[in-house]
Structures are given as structure tokens and as C-alpha cells.
Design a protein around this nucleic acid. Structure first.
Length: 586
RNA sequence: GCGCCCGUAGCUCAGUUGGAUAGAGUGUCGGCCUCCGAAGCCGAAGGUCGCAGGUUCGAAUCCUGCCGGGCGCGCCA
């Protein structure tokens, strides 16, 4: 409808141009929006006001002229000029009822758009280091990413969901070493734990598995393990240097094969846990991309060579630097350290080059807000490769700040004091957690009160929406109990019986759904859908309280049931995009 | 110090990309089950859109400067 109105205005505009009312070369974007206020009709256009300046005429005069030049349209009931020069469109009831027909006929396809048709888009999200279980901070990225992917798919994009696994690097070595130390405890050794090791219970669990599998084969006396190491932080030393030394000691004493075994056990255990956790959260991936595979395949070396050949690398202080400052980054960055090891950034360069080479039209990265400093350098690398940096869209998700009641919960992965995503799911349920996360704009700092989310009270808006869905299901059950029947075809033929204000509001809301999906996808803003669903549910509840659906008059009953069934379909479709279930009973 | 994000009702947040009289939820107060599920509905109260300028027909929205909060500024990941 919006597009059709836009076309009508386009025609009228051309008419005014040929009539000489406005200059031939005038260019204005034709914007048609949903009117906020019902008094302003269904749609409003500000075209006349936009034209006022170039045409050097009063907006209202232009609006009148545009309306006179507007071709007739069967769906347009009347057109008014209002306010400073808005053109308000009132569409016919029949055109509005069309939405109900479409929702029922198209079913779960209602709301699908074609904006992304023919385009491949890759979304990389969560990508937490496999050094421990996901915590509630990752949950927000997972919920946002999952919903965004569904939204894009609903808009016609071919979506590829990817998780980048940081399975190389120092943090993984620290995990492996932490597991080995816990294993040594299982063997009966006692010692002071390093300040910088991973301490969560999951480490103990992995160590126990290791002990069960290898018995005492990897056992070394604590005295020899800790002999000659530098001071740890609690002894006045540096915790980083200490843990690095301990990692080296573990590699020496275990040998490459056994160390690799501990390392792999840690990686697969944690990764399996993350996979399982995300699957339980309703988030699925097409690919788990290994960072290690980039170094092993030589992709990192190739990427660095490419930069070198283009003249963007140089040596200084024994390290190799990328001249990212030439592309808007605030300083140059090291890609190969003095000791010869490549940096995390170097594999990131290779990874993003790989993404583009795989031929996606767009790439979206969803990162935690603490990584925002990385955006300029990654985009700089893309530019150095001669790529358009706009092919990569980095979306930052702010942290969820956890509260228990009014008390803030401090989190740190290393100390093991954190609330895991799994705990959250167990306590508040996947539906509530996913909806809660996705209700807010991603860049908004968000307060997540565990007590509130756990309370299972009406404070959680997801119940409100689910209840609207369940209520409609309940009406159908009630109908059968009373021996009544519903004839959809008759209902659709009787839609003109829906003359109540509540009914027309609901019809309008159902008709808005496809636009909401399109807008939310285009802006990468799933929260728009969440808010819409709340409003739609409100429309259902209000209607329910104001009128009986199961009335004696069969035509009216069929029409009303068609209306609420269309609403149910929209709720179902919308919740599915957000990863929330639509129960038939609460 | 520099950079990014945020500041809207007591609290938690929307605000259709610059539009008409700034909206929800929650909390407070007052109503509604002889009625398809009260996890619901109806009503009332609640605002210097952080502050000050600027841009224009028109600003919560765009620009500049302050104030306040979060995050980031490693040859860490």
C-alpha cells in the first residue's frame, strides 16, 4: 500500500512539473509514513513541505495542488491536507481487510519480504573464546545475532551464520595449563594456584576426565613443576610472566604430544559445551570457523604477503607493523611480534579477507562493545586489500549489567565468579531470556535484573505476548466445546462486519507487520519487532475484553475469528523470528 | 588526555532515520470476573527529552561546546 501511494504521489509530482507549478529539475524523496494519530488517516506524506523551498510556494498550496493531481485509486477512501502541509491518506476498509486475508492465506510466510533477494549475507556472532562457558554477556550477542539472522532470512537474504573459534593463542595455553594443574591436584599434589589461571569448576571437571582417561601418566611432583619459576603476583611478581613461564613448563614436562592432548581435551570440552548451550538457546550455526585453520592453511601468511606486496607493512623494533594509520586508524598495529609469533590481529585480517573471498555480498560482525577499538583497524585492513569497507558492518552490543535486586553482580571469567548463560536459561527459561535481551536497542546499556527475570511474573513482557497467543487458542477450544464451528471462507467474505474501533485497530496492526519486519531487518534492529509484538498483543487483549468472539450470529463470529486467527498467525511468526515459542496454553 | 556508546516520567525503556499534542511497561492511586483464561482490561497522576548555543517552515532526533555514566586506548586475546 505504501509503495502504491508513493507511486500516486510520483505521478502527481510529474503532473505539477509539466504544468509548470514547480521547476522541472526539482528532486525530492517521496516519503510515505504510517500516521501516528488516527485523525491523520492511515498514511501521511510530507512531500509538499519538502517541495516548499525549491518551488518557492507555500506548503499548503502545494499540498492542495498535489492532491488535485493525484490519480484515483480503489484503495484510497479520501485524501486530506492537514497541519503545516501534510497529505493524509485514508484507505478504504476493504483495502485494510486485505491484511487479514493475506495473513491467513500466507500463514507462516506472511511478513516475508524480498529486499534481500539474491544476496548472500554472513553474520558472525558470539565468537567467545573457548576458554570457559558462555556467560550472560555473551547471551545478549547470541539473542541479538540469532534474531537478526532470522530477520534477514525473512527479508529474503541467504544468511550464513558463523562462529569464529579462537582456538589458538595464549589464552588457550593458559586453559590447558589450568587443566593440567587441576589434574595434578587430582593426583594428590597440593600447591598454591597461580593468580592468573582459569578457576571455574568446569576446569576441575575437565581435569577429572583427564585423570580418568590417563590415570597418573601425566603426573609430575609439584616441587619439580614449580621449581625455578619467577614470582607470582601474590609474591610481588607479575602474574602474566608467571603464567607464561608455567605454560612453558607444562609444555616441557609433558612433551608436545601429551600437552597437545590436554590442550585438545580442553578445547573440545569447552566448545562442545558452548555448542550445546547455544543450541539450547535456539541459536544454530552454519559454520564454526577455526582460527587455527588459518595459520595451518597458510592463510595468515598469504594475507600478510598481500599487504606486504601492496606496501603496507614495515619493520620496526624487530616487529612487523601494518600501516593502518593510513586508513583512519589512530596508530599502526603490530602483525608479527619480535619473537616471530603472529598477533591476534593478523589472524583477524586473514579471517576477514577469507570472508570476503567467499563471496558474501555483506558481512556483519557482532562484537561486544569492549572491542569497539578494533573496528578501525579491521576496516583499515579491508581497505588495504582494495575492498570497500562498507561490505563489513560491525554491530556493537553493549554489556548487560547484571543485578540481583538492587545489587550489582561483578563478573570475571578468570576468577570463575560469573553467571553463565546456562544458569540464566535454567532460571528464567529460554523464552524470557531471549525476549528480554532483544527488547532493547543493542547499543543501549542494559540492566538485567536476575530477580526480576526469574520471578516469572507479569513484569516479563514475553508472557504478555504468549498469553495473547494462548488466549486465541483457548477461544478455539472453547468454540469446539460449545459445539460451534468456524468457516474461514465465510469469515473472509464477512470482514465488513468488523466495524468496531478495536477491530479496525487490530486490522491495521496486522497490516503493519510486513513493514515492521522490513524496517527491523534494514536497520538491524530486532527490538523494533519486539515492541511491535507487544503492541499487537495489547490490541488482542483489549479486543478480547471489549467483545465476545463466540457470538450467535455466524457471519460476525466467523469474521471475528478470522481476525483473531490472523493476529495469532502474526504473533507466531514474529515470536519465531525472535526465537521465542508461541504456546497454545500457558 | 584522546576515541566510541549512552543520557527521555520515580524505575526500565521506545520514539517510524528531521514531522503534527513526546509514548509504553513497571511502580503509585481508583475501577472491571454470573461473561470465550484477571499472566487480562479501563481510568488517574507523573516531563526543563542532561545543560547552553546553532542549522530551518519544523529538533528528543542533525552540528558545536560543556556536564554526567559506561567502554576502549598492549609486540594481550
Amino acid at each position: 500500500m505504501k509503495d502504491e501511494l508513493r507511486a500516486l504521489l510520483e505521478t502527481a509530482l510529474e503532473q505539477l512539473k509539466s504544468d509548470g507549478v514547480i521547476p522541472q529539475d526539482t528532486q525530492v524523496p517521496i516519503q510515505v509514513e504510517r500516521a501516528r494519530d488516527k485523525d491523520h488517516g492511515d498514511f501521511a506524506a510530507n512531500t509538499a513541505m519538502m517541495l516548499a523551498k525549491p518551488a518557492r510556494r507555500k506548503p499548503r498550496e502545494l499540498a492542495e495542488a498535489l492532491v488535485r493531481a493525484l490519480p484515483a485509486h480503489p484503495g484510497v477512501d479520501k485524501v486530506e491536507v492537514a497541519g503545516p502541509g501534510f497529505i493524509n491518506f485514508f484507505i478504504t476498509a476493504d483495502a485494510a481487510y486485505q491484511a487479514v486475508r493475506q495473513a491467513l492465506e500466507q500463514g507462516e510466510a506472511y511478513g516475508r519480504g524480498r529486499q534481500g533477494a539474491g544476496q548472500r549475507i554472513m553474520v558472525e556472532f558470539v565468537s567467545a573464546n573457548p576458554t570457559g562457558p558462555l556467560h550472560v554477556g555473551h547471551g545478549r550477542g547470541a539473542a541479538f545475532g540469532g534474531a537478526l539472522c532470522s530477520l534477514l532470512a525473512e527479508s529474503g537474504y541467504q544468511v550464513h551464520r558463523e562462529y569464529y573459534v579462537n582456538d589458538a593463542g595464549r589464552q588457550m595455553d593458559i586453559l590447558a595449563t589450568s587443566i593440567w594443574l587441576r589434574y595434578l591436584e587430582c593426583c594428590g599434589e597440593t600447591f598454591r594456584l597461580p593468580d592468573n589461571m582459569y578457576r571455574g569448576d568446569y576446569v576441575k571437571a575437565i581435569a577429572a576426565t583427564l585423570r580418568e582417561r590417563r590415570q597418573d601418566a601425566l603426573h609430575h611432583p609439584a616441587d619439580s613443576v614449580f621449581a625455578g619459576l619467577p614470582r607470582d603476583a601474590h609474591e610481588g611478581g607479575d602474574k602474566e610472566q608467571y603464567i607464561d613461564a608455567l605454560v612453558e613448563r607444562a609444555k616441557q614436562m609433558l612433551g608436545a604430544a601429551a600437552y597437545g592432548e590436554v590442550f585438545e581435551l580442553g578445547l573440545t570440552s569447552v566448545l562442545d559445551d558452548i555448542r550445546d548451550d547455544l543450541a539450547g538457546f535456539g541459536v544454530r550455526y552454519d559454520q564454526w570457523f577455526s582460527e587455527r585453520s588459518l595459520t595451518e592453511s597458510g592463510a595468515v601468511d598469504r594475507a600478510l604477503q598481500k599487504l606486504d606486496q601492496a606496501g603496507y607493512l614495515y619493520e620496526r623494533d624487530g616487529a612487523v607493523w601494518f600501516r593502518s594509520s593510513g586508513f583512519g586508524d589512530e596508530k599502526d598495529r603490530v602483525v608479527r611480534r619480535e619473537n616471530g609469533a603472529i598477533t591476534y590481529f593478523a589472524s583477524d585480517i586473514a579471517y576477514h579477507l577469507d570472508k570476503l573471498e567467499r563471496g558474501f555480498d555483506h558481512c556483519i560482525d557482532i562484537w561486544g562493545a569492549d572491542h569497539h577499538g578494533y573496528v578501525p583497524r579491521v576496516k583499515a585492513a579491508l581497505q588495504a586489500f582494495g575492498e570497500d569497507p562498507h561490505r563489513l558492518d560491525v554491530r556493537l552490543v553493549q554489556f548487560a549489567i547484571l543485578y540481583r535486586g538492587s545489587e550489582r553482580v561483578q563478573m570475571s571469567t578468570r576468577s570463575g565468579q560469573f553467571v553463565t548463560l546456562r544458569e540464566l536459561r535454567d532460571e528464567v527459561g529460554t523464552d524470557a531470556a531471549r525476549f528480554f535481551y532483544v527488547m532493547r536497542r543493542p547499543e543501549q546499556h542494559m540492566d538485567f535484573d536476575l530477580e526480576l527475570a526469574k520471578s516469572q511474573s507479569a513484569d516479563n513482557p514475553v508472557y504478555y505476548i504468549q498469553y495473547a497467543h494462548a488466549r486465541i487458542c483457548s477461544v478455539l477450544r472453547q468454540m469446539e466445546e460449545r459445539g460451534m464451528e468456524h468457516d474461514p471462507a465465510k469469515g473472509l467474505a464477512s470482514l465488513t462486519r468488523l466495524t468496531e474501533t478495536h477491530e479496525q485497530d487490530l486490522v491495521t496492526a496486522i497490516g503493519q507487520y510486513p513493514e515492521v519486519v522490513a524496517n527491523a531487518a534494514a536497520g538491524r534492529e530486532p527490538h523494533q519487532l519486539a515492541h511491535y509484538l507487544r503492541e499487537l498483543a495489547n490490541g488482542v487483549h483489549t479486543y478480547y475484553n471489549a467483545h465476545q468472539f463466540l457470538v450467535e450470529d455466524p457471519d460476525l463470529r466467523d469474521a471475528r475469528l478470522c481476525l483473531v486467527l490472523a493476529a495469532r498467525q502474526v504473533i507466531r511468526n514474529g515470536l519465531r523470528i525472535l526465537g521465542v515459542s508461541a504456546p497454545e496454553a500457558m
